[in-house]
Amino acid sequence: MENNNNLPEPDTRPDVKDPSRRDFLKKSALITAVALTPAHAVKAAEKHMDERIAEAFEKMPLSLEINGAPHNLMVEPRSTLLDILREQLDLTGTKKGCDLGQCGACTVHVDGHRVISCLTLGIMVNGKKVTTIEGLAKGDQLHPMQEAFLKHDGFQCGYCTPGQIMSAVACIREGHANSEHEIREYMSGNICRCGAYPNIVNAIQEVKEGGLPV
């Protein structure tokens, strides 16, 4: 393998040399175009328009609700929810810390449950409701967990913070915040390299004990 990006080895068998679906799409798109208007098709091929046609075929519709707003998108099946949020929708509050499901920085809620968005393909959340850190506050009024993180200094650099907060809210909703020990266990999927763990535990305990709806 010539890279260290943990990608699968490309299939080099001669009969599937190129990603064949793409090739098929390109050819069939062009054939269709030729059948319609040959002159345009030639021009399209010259300008690599065949790529663009194939691109359109390769994308899939994705309808979902993000932070209460409906979105109708066309996404590649391989795009992760994390990359769709960050790169296509500019919702950069959700962080990429490892892209391998090992750090929790990308935690969002899907239908109210915490989910690691780097291990979630976009098309898997079709028809679902996604909440990101940007959707937690009600306008200027912060969510109680955001207030508690501020008050108890549950962060330093702030990079893991959106994931910690989304996880913390879910931790209480799941009924996993009944003791300091339990909070630590159920918050251990969210790494904080600055080491704000004791403050994060304090914040979650305060919200839990305060009894406000999360």
Binding site: K95, I133, E134, L142, L150, G158, T161
Partner: peptide, 11 residues
């Protein structure tokens, strides 16, 4: 802190 807990801090 407010920018960090609301996801508005840009890295």
């Amino acid at each position: 802190g407010r920018l960090k807990v609301t996801g508005q801090a840009k890295y």
